[in-house]
């Protein structure tokens, strides 16, 4: 675990009486792609938001490139965040600005880059995800769900980040578009040499983009290993999840706590 690019140790987070993260520990080596699988409400998104500092972890350690990042503030936090890119589940595109400005947003606002230069980079990144310069002028509301995901991906890679997070990258897409997005993710990550963590329910997506897979259940990592070994994990929770069985050790909560 000591040589990981991203290392989480005993990460805990509660919302009132509800314990969402119960001591998450995992490690991702530099340039590797880790996919975290798990049911809804098991703490996947909360874990990513804690790493990004959007939520403050109650306790535990987050080390990026060997540096402890919990509690960073001000300029140090801005520098830290500039190393990340993130593709959100619903794309989270800013609907009041055109597509190119969405992609260039981090360059213009976060890095004070000239708009013309940022626009050129945005158009290049859009072409990397298969979108033309014509799309750059449109607004997010004028795009289909698949195109919005592509724009979200272009935005995530716009600043050539060393770490990229993907939150449910294929949710809500048809299987063909999901496969296209998975392929784009693999291509972009390879090109950048980035370290990535993806969270998903979609096993086809997990198998396609993961070097390693970890399973989170009730706020704890209960299994982690190479993607190709997941079918032989000997873990009844993992088996139930990857085969989508209704019966097994995982009991779905019908009502929200």
């Amino acid at each position: 675990m000591a040589d990981g690019h991203i290392i989480l140790q005993d990460l805990r987070k509660s919302f009132g009486p509800k314990h969402v993260l119960n001591g998450v520990s995992l490690s991702v080596p530099k340039g590797h792609s880790l996919v975290v699988i798990g049911g809804s409400g098991t703490g996947k998104s909360v874990m990513l938001k804690c790493v990004l500092g959007i939520l403050r972890a109650d306790s535990g350690s987050i080390r990026i490139g060997g540096e402890e990042v919990v509690g960073l503030k001000g300029a140090a936090r801005d520098d830290y965040l500039s190393r990340f890119g993130m593709l959100f589940q619903g794309s989270a595109l800013f609907d009041s600005i055109p597509v190119w400005e969405n992609v260039a947003f981090g360059l213009i606002q976060g890095r004070n880059m000239a708009r013309a230069q940022a626009r050129d980079i945005a158009i290049e990144k859009l072409s990397q995800v298969g979108l033309t310069a014509e799309v750059a002028k449109l607004y997010p509301a004028e795009l289909s769900g698949g195109m919005q995901k592509r724009v979200g991906l272009a935005r995530a890679i716009a600043a050539d980040p060393e770490i990229i997070f993907f939150d449910e990258p294929t949710t809500g897409l048809d299987p063909i578009m999901a496969d296209i997005i998975n392929k784009l993710i693999v291509d972009c990550v390879k090109r950048l040499g980035a370290t990535t963590i993806s969270i998903t329910h979609d096993m086809a997506s997990a198998r396609k983009i993961a070097d390693d897979i970890a399973m989170i259940h009730k706020g704890e990592i209960i299994w982690q290993g190479p993607a190709k070994t997941i079918d032989y994990s000997d873990n009844p929770y993992v088996d139930q999840f990857i085969h989508g069985r209704g019966t097994g050790p995982i009991q779905m909560e019908v009502l929200k706590a």
Partner: peptide
């Protein structure tokens, strides 16, 4: 709307206060 669609979280990840 920006909050519930995670656009405010996206601002944070784009190094924007």
């Amino acid at each position: 709307t920006m909050r519930v669609t995670e656009q405010i979280d996206a601002l944070v990840t784009l190094s924007t206060n």
